[in-house]
Design a protein around this nucleic acid. Sequence first.
DNA 1: TGTTGACCTGAGAGTAAGGCTCAGGTTTAT
DNA 2: ATAAACCTGAGCCTTACTCTCAGGTCAACA
Lengths: 145, 145
Amino acid sequence: MKVHELARSEQVSAATIRHYVRVGLLQPRKGSNGYHVFAEPEQRRLRFIRQARGLGFTLEDIQTILQDAEKGQSPCPTVRQLIEPRLQQAREKLEAMQALVERMENAVASWQEQPDCQPCGDHICLLIEGSDHTEQNRGGDASHE
Amino acid sequence: MKVHELARSEQVSAATIRHYVRVGLLQPRKGSNGYHVFAEPEQRRLRFIRQARGLGFTLEDIQTILQDAEKGQSPCPTVRQLIEPRLQQAREKLEAMQALVERMENAVASWQEQPDCQPCGDHICLLIEGSDHTEQNRGGDASHE
DNA sequence: TGTTGACCTGAGAGTAAGGCTCAGGTTTAT
DNA sequence: ATAAACCTGAGCCTTACTCTCAGGTCAACA
Ligand SMILES: [Zn+2]
Ligand SMILES: [Zn+2]
Ligand SMILES: [Zn+2]
Ligand SMILES: [Zn+2]
């Protein structure tokens, strides 16, 4: 199996496989012509990497896990340990994305009723600067333009 | 105002301000000693940048917007146009994060009842490889270990 | 006046996970 | 023989910073 063949068979880009080879996650044999030769174990390894990526592990996590397995240890304790901070981070990112989408949607909605602002030196763009879109606008010098 | 003073007054890191200077988003005057001098307009500019970032614009988007405003044009049309793909991308990322967190939580939950796997040559880690955690496991050669 | 310590500068590298490009080697078919 | 198609490693690009570094500046104190 050459890079592109493996890539097709596992639904990843050849660039991704090259990247894994580069960082040492995959170690294919080299044929006499210099071409990479991927056999069964490498293919299973790639499948494993993709599954682990799908569960939020980083490539470095996966390195650690694979190294455990290669030393004949059960990687499970490492796996159970590594997923905790990843899950925590994923939850945080999820919340951040929820908040962001909400802010963006509120902004777009309120912009429908706002006219384009004209440059006047004391602001840059009122669509953006007047984005108290999460809190209710406290009545102040809002009648700016 | 020097970098650290501006940083404190606007709640960003000095490194961030340096970064903005480096990419041209901020163009402070230089004092005779070579130090940056941030005055009112630069401070408002920074505030604007932060608000735009909070709405999901990229630094490049913000460059474009600021350049509009500097040319005396109203940046609003650009703003309305630029936010669309950003919102789209944010929604996609949000969905991806929701799916990821769900997969991770399902995995962690099911792992509670799974024992650590022992290396046996035909798998790497069953916690990860047996992650049909989204679909129901179709009964097959599941009695592997 | 000398020196210390705090602050400042630009440049450069690092981050995660690949994507893209390049020059050059190989294979296959004409 | 030669051209098309494929392969290789190396290196730079992406985002929005963050960190590090060598060297310049400044205030205070002896
Ligand atoms: Zn105005
Ligand atoms: Zn505007
Ligand atoms: Zn087994
Ligand atoms: Zn395991």
